[in-house]
Structures are given as structure tokens and as C-alpha cells.
Design a protein around this nucleic acid. Structure first.
Lengths: 339, 339
DNA sequence: TTGTACGCGTTATCAA
DNA sequence: TTGATAACGCGTACAA
């Protein structure tokens, strides 16, 4: 049974309020009793009850963080930014993952609600509408990461990243550029698909819908995508994958078919995982502003907590990273003649 | 301001206790008032206060999880096991990472303590002694993952995994087998180094201490290790890395020097990251029982919470995974003559 | 079936 | 400088 403030009071022969004052170094208390009580508390192993504190204080200095997938480095890297920023403003953090399940997400939010969090941040929300609903009765501010349609959000600009990749491939001479999505062929929460299309159009390249194939955000999705693409009468010469893990799947599948990257096909990823630079071949990709995403989200949330109303959605820019998994299309032709 | 049970009572014209009963479907309440009050609570957006609940209930059904590094998949994979097992027994989970900093670890534990967690699990503890100290005043049970010296712990058997790798390399004809540690040359919390030594001795291979070099658990550590190893008058023919990320660093460094794996050198890792199977070359490694580690830790913790005393440290076995980054030493000689 | 009264651990106000 | 008292939101024994 934990030691309470009363236990200390009894043993010290003082009132509970004196103990409270001693422990919170209140001005109106003698240095001597303060010292004495603190020592006693120490010896008895006193640890204050957060529940009781929060009860009287009406809420805690804790922010709840709900994350789509703990196993995806793209998300966990945001957490460092979140935690550092929160710590800097002396906020605690409570973390939960909903594994891309909207029901679990809502359960987590409910839990945060019960715990009377100062505010919450959700990254990769599967139930963003819930926060937009006009009758939602949250009594705590919410910031979403990567849901730019939400008024209080911080997002990475998926469009500009995709554009840079596609233009890079075009500059290398590629015309048949495939895109491997995450999810179905035509859903794309990240705006990448949209700007893949725009970039092609701007360069007068006819869009071939058969070059857009579905992945699953992981290695297996990339592997399957290659099977689909090679069933086409005219396969692509370059493949732009939703993320690095997908790109790795693509490269593996190509290798299994006896092709070499980037000699025979160019492949680009997205995210710039730690791995990407050390893969073989090193991946051409897009570095996401993950750390800053987390950081800015906390800043925005703190503004909302302090009821400042000058908050607008933020969009951070990703950075194109040129490595060795892409090459001029010429290489392929040369290589082709070698085979 | 959140809605309280009193607010509902006032609006419904009943007493707070009636509301409480309606919400917890207490037996002694009429179906009609229950229905009415529940609807009202719904409309008003009532969400119970966890603080108040925990205060009267003396503690919450929440277990605290402190993890060494959120960015390391080895740890995050344990979390799935932990969360699933906890959910199955309807326990909440509160997660925090201390980024391998013992001070931050202790701060997290202190926070868990204040929150009166039902129990806590620490994986990759940097301050394990704190839990062993005879005068620790935790009023909640603690289970450690991978600290086999602690009485309430679940660990992966680092020794048997290392042994299998070394014996595999020996069987391939390697005699000069290097080991890249995590940390300094001679500290090894995982027992891998110890059994690396034992395995060599058992096969009558003289131990060469210069073949044991320090890494940092990441890619850069592997790269630096190779520099050290090649400064030796007699470099190794095989390199056993503390983990897969280190192995990837090693392979990169070798490639940069113009060597090919496994033709010129065999390299083995540890952990079996998702990546490992899809790296080039696919990594020979050891699959850790990460998910079960988390799962068993929760089971043990629940036993402690229920004050069952038949708890003994558990050790789970890892699994050797043969892939393509290791090969018979003969290959090297043939390859050497080609160059 | 419902209301009253009290306690959980802590802090804050007011009185001594 | 200290002590008594009330309050935070909820659950529950006891009384009505």
C-alpha cells in the first residue's frame, strides 16, 4: 500500500496540509519543518498520487499521442520530435498505437479523454472524420499529422516530393514510369498519386493507368506489383514506389527475374529510411521531415491548449535525395543488348 | 469544462449516486431511469474521469512499459506482443521510451509510480540495478525483458544464438571469425560475446582478441569495425555482427573496398529484421523471439499482480536463419584468384 | 428503487 | 508558521 501524505503527517505529528506545503516548497513554512518532513517522506518512500493531483488540478500536463503503426519507422521517427518538444515544455507524453485500425484509434482517443489529457496528437489517423464532426464533444484540443484537410494539422507535402521524383525520372529519359500505391490503385491519402499524374501531364507524357498498381506499404506489396507490371504488354522502364520498403520489394522481385537495378530498371522510393542509404543499390528517395513534423505538431497543440487562435494548417517540405537506384534509360538499352 | 456525474444528476433531477448506478449497470436500478440517464449522459457528452476513478479504486488496470529505443525495431516488435497480451486481459498500456538513457529511464519509472500503475515492464533497461536494490520502495511489480539476472524477467537466450552462428561459420571452414560488439570491446549484456568465445574454444580455435571490435548497434558501427579489422596484419574471413544493422554496415564497408559478400567474406547478423530477408545479399542471421518475449512478460507481470509466487525467470530460444550472406571459405580463395 | 453520507489523496482557502 | 475545512469526481455502504 503506497504511503500517503496523511501517513507522513501522522508520523511527523503535523497536519496533512503542512506536509503538502513542505513537499511543494510553499513559501509559508519554516525551513526546519520542511527539511524534517522531506527527509521523512524520503525514508517512507512517498510518491505523490497522480490521480489525486489531477483530480484537484482538473487535468494533467500530459499529451496523448496516438500513432498509426509502431513498427513503421516513418511514424516512430516523428515520435522523437514529439517527445523532445513536449519535454522542452515540461509536458509528459502518453503513447499508443492503433495499428491502422480505426476502431482501436477511437478507443485510444476515448482513453485519452478519460484521462483528461491536456491535448492529443494523432498521426496517420484512420478516422479523421471523427475529429471533424460538428458534434464531437472533445474537451481537449486535437492536432493531426498528415491530414491537411483538418484545420489543426501539420503535414508533409506529399505532392512536391512525388513531383520531384517523377521529374527526375523523366529527365533521365524515362517515359513509361509506373507508380506503386499503398492501398487500392486509386486511393492515395498522401497526394503522391495526384502529383505523379500532374507531373506526367506537364511533360506531355500520356498517362497509362495500367502502370498504376496497388502495393501494401511493405516489401510484399512491391513484389506483387512487379508481377503485375510484367504481365503488361509494355512493362515500365522506371518504378516509383510509395515508400522505401515497397521499393525494396520491387528491387528484390526484379533481381529474382534476373534484372539489375538501375542498369535494367530505375526504382525510386520514399521516406529515406536509415536503411535506404545502405541498401544495394543505395535508394533514390525522398527524405520526409519526420522529426520536424512531430516538433511542429507539439508547438501547434500547445498553442491550442493556451487558447491562442492564430493557428493554421502547416505543410512541411520533403527533400529529394539522389542515390544510385535510378539511372538514365540509355543504360537499359546498352544492358539489354549485352544480355 | 468536462461534464461530471453531478451535472447529469442535476439535469435529470436525480441524485449523483443514481447516475453512477445507471452508468455502471448496477443491479438496483429501474430499467427506465437507467435508459433515461444513459441517453442523457450520451447527449451531454459525458466521459468518466480516470483520475477520480483511480482514486477511489486505488490504482488503475494499466501497465507501464518503458522501452530502450522506439527507433529500434527489435524493441518495437516486442511491443506488439506486449500490447496484444495486455489487451487480452483487458489491461491498458502506457508506453514510454528512454532512448538508452538511464536517467530518463528512472524518470519514466517514477512517473509510472505516480500514476499508480498496476505493474511495469522494462525492456533493455540501463538501470537494472535500481530494481534489484534491497531498499527500493516500488509498490508495483516489475518485470524486465532481457535482464536474466533479475528474478522476474523474460529473456532471449543470446548465448545459444551466438553459438549457432559461430558453429555455422566454422562448419563453412572459417577460422578467423571477427565479432563486432555493441559498445566497448568487452562489454556484452547479451551473452553473445561470451558464447562466441566458448564456441571457438570448443572447436579448438585460438581466440584472437584483436578480432573483437567495438560497434554501436548501427550501420556506422559496422563500417568503422571494418576499418579496424582491415588494419590488422591478418584480417578475418568471416564477420559476426551484433545485429543486422551492424551487419549491413559491415557489408557496405566491404563493398566500398571492392569486396563482395559472401564471395570474399562471410557476414552474419542478428535479429532478423524485416529487411534482412530482402537485403542484398539476404542476411544469415538469428531470429529473435520478440513477439513472445513481450507476451510472456505480460503473463509474468499479471502473475505478480495477482500475487502468485510461482514465478521464475524465463529464457526463450532464438532461431538460426540461414540465408545468403555466408558461404564456404573456399569461395573466397577462388574469388581471390579471379581478381 | 432511490437518496444521503463518506472516503479516496491532494491542494487551496481561511482561521488561528 | 501551522491547522482545520472544503473541494475535485466518483463509488458504495447504509438508510429511506
Amino acid at each position: 500500500m503506497p504511503v500517503s501524505i496523511k501517513d507522513i503527517a501522522k508520523k511527523a505529528g503535523v497536519s496533512p496540509s503542512t506536509v503538502s506545503r513542505a513537499l511543494n516548497d510553499h513559501p509559508r513554512i519554516s525551513t526546519k519543518t520542511k527539511r524534517c518532513i522531506r527527509d521523512l517522506a524520503d525514508v517512507m518512500g512517498y510518491v505523490p498520487s497522480a490521480a489525486a493531483r489531477n483530480l484537484v488540478a482538473k487535468g494533467s500536463a500530459t499529451i496523448g499521442i496516438a500513432i498509426a503503426d509502431l513498427l513503421d519507422p516513418y511514424y516512430t521517427r516523428q515520435i522523437s520530435g514529439l517527445e523532445d518538444a513536449a519535454a522542452r515544455h515540461s509536458y509528459q507524453v502518453m503513447l499508443s498505437s492503433f495499428y491502422r485500425d480505426s476502431e482501436r484509434e477511437l478507443a485510444i482517443i476515448h482513453d485519452f479523454h478519460q484521462r483528461r489529457m491536456a491535448g492529443i496528437i494523432v498521426t496517420g489517423s484512420e478516422a479523421a472524420q471523427a475529429y471533424l464532426a460538428p458534434d464531437n464533444k472533445f474537451f481537449m484540443p486535437v492536432v493531426l499529422i498528415n491530414r491537411p484537410e483538418y484545420p489543426f494539422s501539420v503535414s508533409a507535402n506529399g505532392a512536391t516530393g512525388a513531383k520531384k521524383v517523377v521529374e527526375h525520372l523523366i529527365k533521365l529519359g524515362h517515359r513509361r514510369i509506373a507508380y506503386v500505391t499503398w492501398g487500392s490503385e486509386h486511393v492515395d491519402s498522401s497526394n503522391r498519386l495526384r502529383d505523379y499524374r500532374i507531373a506526367l501531364r506537364e511533360h506531355n507524357i500520356a498517362l497509362d493507368e495500367t502502370l498504376i498498381v496497388a502495393g501494401d506499404g511493405g516489401v510484399t506489396g512491391g513484389i506483387k506489383a512487379v508481377t503485375h507490371l510484367f504481365a503488361l504488354s509494355q512493362p515500365p522502364t522506371a518504378i516509383f514506389a510509395f515508400n522505401d520498403m515497397t521499393a525494396i520489394g520491387v528491387i528484390n522481385a526484379l533481381r529474382r527475374r534476373g534484372h539489375e537495378v538501375p542498369r535494367d530498371f530505375s526504382v525510386a522510393g520514399y521516406d529515406d529510411l536509415e536503411m535506404a542509404a545502405y541498401y544495394y543499390p543505395p535508394l533514390t528517395t525522398v527524405r520526409q521531415p519526420t522529426y520536424r513534423l512531430g516538433q511542429r505538431a507539439v508547438i501547434m497543440l500547445l498553442k491550442l491548449i493556451n487558447e491562442e487562435r492564430d493557428v493554421a494548417p502547416e505543410v512541411l517540405e520533403p527533400e529529394f535525395v539522389l542515390r544510385a537506384s535510378t539511372a538514365p534509360i540509355g543504360n537499359k538499352l546498352v544492358a539489354g543488348s549485352e544480355v
